[in-house]
Design a protein around this nucleic acid. Structure first.
Lengths: 178, 178
DNA sequence: CTGATATAGATCGTATGCGATATATTCGCG
DNA sequence: CGCGAATATATCGCATACGATCTATATCAG
């Protein structure tokens, strides 16, 4: 039926630590597991998944003030970097495709924060640019700060950011090679 | 109405690095930004967001084999840790609430991988347990491995996992304190 | 014992993600 | 030039997330 059906499944559903090497030293009532078995809390994929949920929730109050959702805000930030990006270019930056991006962009356009117009030189492409209102919104969002909520020192913060980016890019590279 | 609406908005929409300190040394055609301005690629929240998308895509081929989605698989792993967890307990583990969890659990029940039954001692609660088919499915999923796709050495992998967990827990703690 | 309140799940509406597909435009090649 | 393939975007259906609300059950005050 769909795609990706070649030799795919040497891919893993198990990206956790090698074993239950994490002890219960911190007093949290962990459940016991037999030797060598993986607990949900030890999966890196789950750490990323749940951290993403946490970020979405942490951003919510600030985003409500702006009247934006999390992906809408990401799109605003991405668009602020350069005017006239195509949907594909924006998608490459945001790791999304037109099926997800188009509805988000249409909504932001309806809100008056950006313009979408076909490229006269290639009518297949749609060029997207922030309006003045969109730029003002970006400014409004920038004066807030979540770094302290992360509880990380600046250098830890920067190192973590780089590690996560490296992880992401490795996962994507591994997929492309498959 | 809901919670978190007190002095909320000292929360940040800007968890990126302090400035555009990241140079373009790796040859990727980055766009230039004025001093002190943040690019999407420098936000930790976006790194987590995009890494989560990448994980979802990396897992897809393996999950298709199991006929599961990513959250469904997480639920199976979480349920495997102990029988008879309530929806709330499972939600605490997965960082989800009943509005999200109930439909997932109902689908997995319809697939025959778990049982949901009201607790006779407290009819408000629903106890969830894997069936034998559910446990077999968990086994089937466990023999695969994504660690090498991460491109990280085991110790880096473990350290990253702990950092992301710490980040997540700090974000949640900061929210609760607000 | 009884009404008020609290708690646990479930339901509903909205907004993503994403696979599959549709549409429009451009490109390639004879 | 003309037509099939490739490209860019949009549309549709399904499965999460999540706020708001509903229902059922349990607990508590008096």
């Amino acid at each position: 039926m769909s795609v990706c059906r070649k030799g795919a499944p040497r891919m893993s559903l198990q990206d956790g630590l090698k074993a239950n090497s994490r002890d219960n030293s911190k007093g949290n009532h962990k459940e016991k597991t037999a030797a060598g078995e993986r607990r949900l809390a030890d999966f890196l994929c789950f750490a990323i998944y749940s951290a993403n949920l946490a970020y979405g929730r942490a951003y919510k109050p600030g985003l409500d003030e702006l009247g934006l959702t999390y992906p809408q805000w990401i799109a605003i930030v991405a668009l602020w970097e350069r005017d006239g990006q195509t949907v594909s270019e924006l998608g490459a930056k945001m790791f999304l495709e037109s099926n997800t991006l188009t509805p988000i962009l249409k909504k932001l356009e309806a809100m008056g924060y950006l313009r979408r117009q076909r490229d006269p030189a290639d009518e297949r492409q749609v060029r997207v640019s922030l309006t003045d209102a969109g730029r003002r919104l970006r400014e409004k969002g920038m004066h807030m700060n979540l770094v302290k909520s992360s509880g990380l020192k600046p250098d830890e913060f920067a190192r973590l950011q780089e590690s996560v980016v490296a992880l992401r890019d490795n996962l994507i590279k591994a997929m492309a090679e498959e």
